[in-house]
Design a binder for these strands. Structure first.
Lengths: 174, 174
DNA sequence: CCGTGACAGTTGAAGGTTCAAGCAACTTCT
DNA sequence: AGAAGTTGCTTGAACCTTCAACTGTCACGG
């Protein structure tokens, strides 16, 4: 029941590609779940929120404009706004206006937020190590780095305006 | 924040690991977004729902017990229940009871669901190709397969029942 | 100075995911 | 048979993400 028939089909995934695609799909689905579960049981926040806090903590002033923060964490402005609102309500982040440009808001990591981060970081890195790096040797890590850098580069590009994706004549291997 | 306290901290990520971890995190975050956006604009469903339909379409009878379907798509029973309910409401899946075990429900892909799938499959595979395989040569694909298979194997294991949670710094509440 | 447009961030509603309960049907043990 | 436990799936509430619309601010040009 594979859709191989259409004349408009750009070339189906071959066996090798499929053998890479299915596990990748699984990793992409299960890895955030694993990270979320651990963090949520330890701190009550998902790993997306943790990433916000961690990114702030890495800044010299523990503060960042919303836009920059959104860019660094690869999230949408809307999502970040909601996230920072939730984190602010829990006292881990505070907002401060920018003196020179009143459109800009800075998100600042509070001492409480920093303490929280310090508390959960060990467990978090242990989990990352368990699910990712414990199974890999140095060469694997190097290959993973190259591959993921390539993919994240493509994913960072704009989402392709519209329909002009499907023009690929090249057929090589079935 | 550089934690190196041997006893509680398992060992921080070194430079090589960090250089692999950050792009991996990004891929894990952006890849589902890219797939979701494309599918949602074409069919009004996210890629999780598409995966349900696709898995059903690959079965001999285009049907599967909920439990099996949950296992194959690596989703929780609850999530699948909600998903199938939504897909059923749109007429792409129907539920049928099992004659021999009345606890079991079969999810069946309808003709409409199959037609939808046939319609979106070309665009979907084109997107997968664009964001993943267009940037990789045959060796890269082989490496990706090995790496992702390893990781998905670890992730498939039980979420660590109790094991090493010992260090609970407990900052929660607040 | 005022209008236009771009930019930074927020808001609310709709939909998806998760968690903890819960119900019903099967199994096992006595 | 009947009680107790297990399995298979569903439900509802809380939360998170997304999308489109919106507010307020700045920059530019007449």
């Amino acid at each position: 029941m594979t859709a191989q028939d259409g004349a408009t089909t750009p070339r189906w995934l071959d066996e090798q590609e499929m053998a890479a695609w299915l596990p990748l799909l699984r990793v992409v689905q299960l890895l955030p779940q694993a990270l979320d579960r651990r963090l949520r049981s330890e701190a009550g926040i998902g790993h997306a929120y943790d990433q916000v806090l961690a990114t702030l903590s890495a800044q010299p002033e523990r503060a960042l404009a919303m836009g920059e923060l959104a860019r660094l964490t690869a999230t949408s402005p809307s999502r970040l706004s909601h996230a920072v609102a939730a984190l602010e309500e829990r006292g881990w982040v505070s907002r401060r206006p920018c003196p020179t440009d009143r459109r800009i808001q800075y998100a600042c990591l509070t001492d409480g937020g920093f303490a929280l981060l310090a508390g959960i970081a060990p467990g978090h890195v242990a989990e990352v190590r368990r699910v990712v790096f414990d199974g890999l040797d140095a060469e694997d890590v190097a290959r993973l780095r190259v591959l993921m850098t390539t993919l994240s580069g493509v994913l960072a590009e704009p989402p392709v305006p519209s329909a002009q994706v499907a023009r690929e004549g090249h057929v090589r291997g079935a």
